Simulated scan of single mutants.
Amino acid sequence: MTGPPADDGAADSDAPEATVTLPADVVERYEKFSRFNSPYPAHDHGRAVDLYPGAGVGRSPVAGVVREVRTVGCPDRPYAAAEDHLIVVDLADEWCARAGAPSGTVARVLHVIPEVDPGDRVAVGDALGPTTRSGFFGQWVDDHVHLGFRPPDANPLRASGSLPVAADLHAEPVAWGGTGAVVERGPTHVVLDGPRRSGSGPAFAALASDEGVPLDGGLTHYAGGGTFRGKVGSTVPDGTTLSLFGTEIGSLRAGDADAGAPGVEWAPVDVLANGERVTGLSLFAARGDRFGVKVVCPDREFEIGESVTLDVVASDDPIRLGVG
Score class of each variant (00 low, 15 high):
Ser243Val: 03
Gly305Gln: 05
Val26Arg: 03
His45Pro: 09
Thr21Leu: 15
His146Gln: 11
Gly225Val: 01
Gly199Leu: 12
Arg229Ala: 08
Arg229Asp: 00
Ser103Val: 01
Glu172Ser: 04
Leu207Tyr: 02
Ala11Trp: 08
Val183Gly: 13
Glu301Phe: 05
Ser198Ala: 13
His43Asn: 12
Arg47Asp: 09
Gly199Ala: 11
Arg98Val: 15
Leu215Asp: 04
Ala166Arg: 01
Glu306Ile: 05
Arg300Val: 04
Val313Tyr: 05
Gly58Asn: 04
Asn274Ser: 11
Pro152Trp: 05
His111Ile: 03
Val191Gly: 06
Leu242Lys: 05
Glu68Ser: 13
Gly148Pro: 00
Ala166Asp: 01
Cys297Asp: 05
His170Pro: 00
Ser234Glu: 15
Ser162Met: 14
Asp142Trp: 08
Ser160Ala: 15
Gly138Ile: 03
Ala123Leu: 15
Ser103Leu: 13
Leu310Trp: 01
Ala42Glu: 08
Gly135Cys: 00
Ser307Phe: 02
Asp256Ala: 10
Val26Gly: 05
Phe36Lys: 06
Pro268Asp: 14
Ile249Met: 10
Gly138Asn: 13
Gly246Pro: 08
Ala92Ser: 15
Pro118Cys: 14
Arg133Ser: 07
Val89Tyr: 01
Pro4Met: 15
Pro262Ile: 10
Trp266Leu: 12
Ala171Asn: 03
Gly194Ile: 06
Val271Lys: 01
Gly73Cys: 08
Val295Gln: 01
Ala159Lys: 00
Glu211Cys: 06
Gly194Tyr: 03
His146Gly: 07
Gly125His: 10
Arg229Thr: 02
Gly225Cys: 10
Thr188Gln: 14
Ala314His: 10
Pro4Gly: 15
Pro164Asn: 05
Ala10Gln: 14
Pro173His: 03
Pro214Ile: 06
Phe204Leu: 06
Phe204Gly: 00
Pro78Ile: 03
Lys294Gly: 03
Glu301Val: 06
Val109Leu: 15
Tyr30Gly: 00
Ile87Cys: 05
Pro23Gly: 13
Thr227Arg: 09
Val293His: 04
Ala273Cys: 10
Phe291Tyr: 03
Gln139Lys: 13
His221Asn: 09
Pro41Gln: 12
Ala167Ser: 08
Ala10Asp: 14
Pro237Met: 13
Val190Ile: 14
Leu321Gly: 09
Leu157Gln: 10
Glu28Arg: 09
Asp289Phe: 12
Phe302Glu: 03
Ser234Gln: 15
Asp299Gln: 08
Leu22Ile: 15
Asp193Leu: 06
Thr227Glu: 05
Ala11Ile: 09
Asp256Gly: 12
Asp270Gln: 04
Arg108His: 11
Gly250Gln: 04
Gly224Asp: 10
Leu157Val: 03
Ala223Tyr: 07
Gly177Cys: 09
Glu31Phe: 06
Val27Asp: 02
Val232Trp: 08
Ser234Arg: 15
Arg158Glu: 12
Ile319Gln: 10
His85Leu: 09
Gly180Lys: 02
Gly64Asp: 10
Gly54His: 00
Asp12Ala: 15
Arg290Asn: 11
Asn155Leu: 11
Val27Pro: 09
Phe228Met: 01
Val312Ala: 00
Val57Lys: 07
Val293Ser: 07
Ala267Cys: 14
Ala15Trp: 12
Trp95Asp: 11
Cys297Arg: 02
Ala18Leu: 09
Val26Thr: 12
Phe137Lys: 01
His43Ile: 11
Ser243Gly: 12
Asp50Ser: 12
Arg29Thr: 11
Ile87Val: 14
Gly230Val: 07
Pro268Gln: 12
Pro151Ser: 10
Asp256Thr: 14
Arg98Ile: 14
Phe228Asp: 01
Phe136Trp: 07
Pro151Phe: 04
